[in-house]
């Protein structure tokens, strides 16, 4: 066993990271996306993230106590915090405390700890929480507020956010807040309408900026080599390919619209890259990412939900172990040489 470790050796050329640092850095890399999202969609994003993070950490602690595992070192690894931040970012701004609590329970208690804790979970916890809420509370989950800004004349009052956070929906405020996301518009488009007429330019603009901010965080992760480039690249590439194809078949927004109009960037760099629930081989990871991209596009185009990253991820989580078997990295040493010998 090596007595030298990359993350502990002081004079290593490129210091590595241990898993806690990794989690912390990924959480930090969420900041540009979170800030931009709050800038456009208001305080509701902040309440989402804080509530979800708190719920996830609390539930993790309770599960650890229940499982008679040491609490503080595991909390310190930061994985529950990250799950909470990702879940909070995925939810529509201003989701109520109760929904977030249910989502966090599904994410941390069920998807993570019932499967054996960190490293053992088959499914991406944040996406399990999100998908459960999406199918159980479709109305609340489709209430994305219009991008009325964090400050300024159109900004929603803090008291309204508070009311939403507590689960109260004053009818007047509801009207003022709800706005169709670009993908909603795409989902419900009349057969002959072009997208430009359907989507408010302000919404398109807001979503595009949010996507670029998530992309920036993702590029930081790539730069620090905290994530495997194969996963986001293959997902975005397969999405782009299918978006282009669908656009050729029937005008459907095009590549830019699909990559920047929804959760594609957030998903590609922060969800698909979760190594625990992804495939692990190099080639298998390419197939895994490509599968998520393809499923996302197919569900967006033909399925019943406006966005589909969560479902695509969960479906490919299921397929990940199989992919590792089906597309192994390379023939083993033994086979390679034997073939060589037979030739000679």
């Amino acid at each position: 066993m090596s007595h030298l470790h990359r993350h502990t050796s002081a004079d290593s050329a490129r210091r590595g990271h241990d898993s806690a640092t990794l989690m912390r850095r990924v959480t930090l890399a969420c900041l540009p996306g979170l800030i931009t999202q709050s800038w456009f969609f208001g305080l509701g994003v902040v309440t989402n993230v804080i509530t979800a993070a708190a719920c996830c950490v609390l539930i993790e602690a309770m599960m650890l106590v229940a499982r008679r595992r040491p609490v503080s070192p595991t909390i310190a690894d930061g994985s529950a915090l990250l799950t909470g931040v990702l879940l909070g970012a995925a939810l529509p701004a201003g989701t109520s405390l109760w929904l977030i609590l249910i989502g966090s329970l599904a994410a941390v208690a069920v998807a993570k700890h019932l499967y054996g804790g960190l490293g053992q979970n088959l499914f991406n916890p944040a996406m399990v929480g999100y998908a459960l809420l999406l199918v159980s509370f479709p109305t609340q989950m489709s209430l994305w507020p219009a991008p009325s800004g964090l400050f300024g004349p159109d900004a929603v009052e803090p008291s309204t956010w508070l009311a939403r956070w507590l689960g109260q929906h004053p009818p007047a405020a509801l009207d003022a807040m709800s706005g169709a996301t670009p993908l909603d518009a795409y989902r419900h488009r009349p057969a002959d309408a072009s997208l430009a007429e359907l989507v408010a330019p302000a919404a398109l603009e807001a979503w595009r900026n949010v996507a670029v901010a998530w992309l920036a965080g993702g590029l930081y992760l790539l730069y620090r080599r905290l994530i495997d480039w194969r996963l986001p690249l293959s997902m975005l590439a397969s999405m782009a390919l299918l978006a282009w194809l669908f656009d050729q078949l029937s005008a459907s927004g095009g590549v830019g619209f699909h990559l920047l109009g929804g959760a594609a960037m957030f998903g590609a760099f922060f969800i698909v890259t979760d190594p625990v629930s992804a495939a692990s081989g190099r080639r298998a990871r390419l197939a895994y990412g490509a599968g998520i991209g393809a499923l996302t596009m197919i569900i967006r185009a033909y399925g019943g939900y406006p966005d589909a990253v969560a479902f695509a991820v969960l479906l490919m989580n299921l397929a990940a172990p199989l992919l590792d078997q089906l597309v192994p990295d390379r023939p083993s040493n033994a086979r390679a040489t034997r073939r060589h010998n037979d030739d000679g």
């Binding site: 002081a10 241990d18 898993s19 692990s280 990871r285 990295d329």
Partner: peptide
């Protein structure tokens, strides 16, 4: 110079070990 490593955590399948392995 050779600090004792902190206690092991679960494998998160980050895959960092794969490119490091000289036997592929």
């Amino acid at each position: 110079e050779l600090p004792t490593p902190p206690p092991a955590r679960p494998c998160i399948r980050c895959g960092d070990c794969q490119p490091a392995c000289p036997a592929g």
